[in-house]
Design a protein around this nucleic acid. Structure first.
Lengths: 111, 111
DNA sequence: TACGATGTTCGACGAACGACGAAATTGGTG
DNA sequence: CACCAATTTCGTCGTTCGTCGAACATCGTA
């Protein structure tokens, strides 16, 4: 048996209409993940390892998985790096104004 | 020793400026609590036991405590009943638009 | 005063969470 | 090919979560 025909299992992303509000709220209720989202808000995409959050790589990987499965971010692979981007358009279609309002609320507490 | 000079310990509510966004998001990330908030949105206040949610009384009491400590609701005691109300004004001052946007998002998924 | 209604507190439980280190995977580079 | 850098997967640990039942407290009323 060959190890695998495909190098990695494809990354799972929920479709726009399947994005669950409770998953989104839960994803945003963690400070580390909020930081990631806030940073992603300011640039189109970014490699996982380049976020200034103070947790172990494996923990970071876990948070990216939560964010991706909630529908907040999209991830694509390039070589051995993984880039993340906010699903701004999808989020806006699914829950209009939600992301902006939550991020504005967060900005108000941590300026 | 007298049983107590005060019948019950006073109910703890965070001040408006102390309402924490992560606490609010976490409180709203549970379906039972979201139902309570949604109902409270339509009337000024309501007794705890009158909410059409299908959980044990002790569980309901726990959810009200989470909501109260997050700053989402205020509770006042009257005789042996406890009334809950949405802290609409405080929430709006602390996190403008947040409650409306989240409730609108929820309405979009459960019409 | 005894009862019933309302609601809370107190464990207990299993499930999920956030964190970590070690090992594995992948791909570029010497 | 050997090595390194980026990242995930796996297993584990301790904590928190949502739920429940049993017991307790409070208040109005028979």
């Amino acid at each position: 048996m060959p190890r695998s025909t495909r190098r990695r299992p494809a990354l799972a992303h929920p479709a726009t209409e399947e994005i669950d509000l409770f998953d989104v709220l839960h994803a945003l209720s963690d400070p580390t993940r909020m930081t990631i989202v806030r940073i992603l808000r300011t640039e189109p995409e970014r490699a996982c390892g380049t976020f200034p959050v103070d947790v172990a790589p494996s923990t970071l990987s876990h948070h990216f998985k939560v964010l991706r499965e909630s529908g907040l971010i999209a991830q694509r692979e390039e070589a051995n790096r993984r880039f993340s981007a906010l699903r701004t358009v999808d989020l806006e279609r699914r829950f209009p104004g939600l992301l902006d309002t939550v991020l504005a609320a967060h900005a108000r507490t941590a300026p």
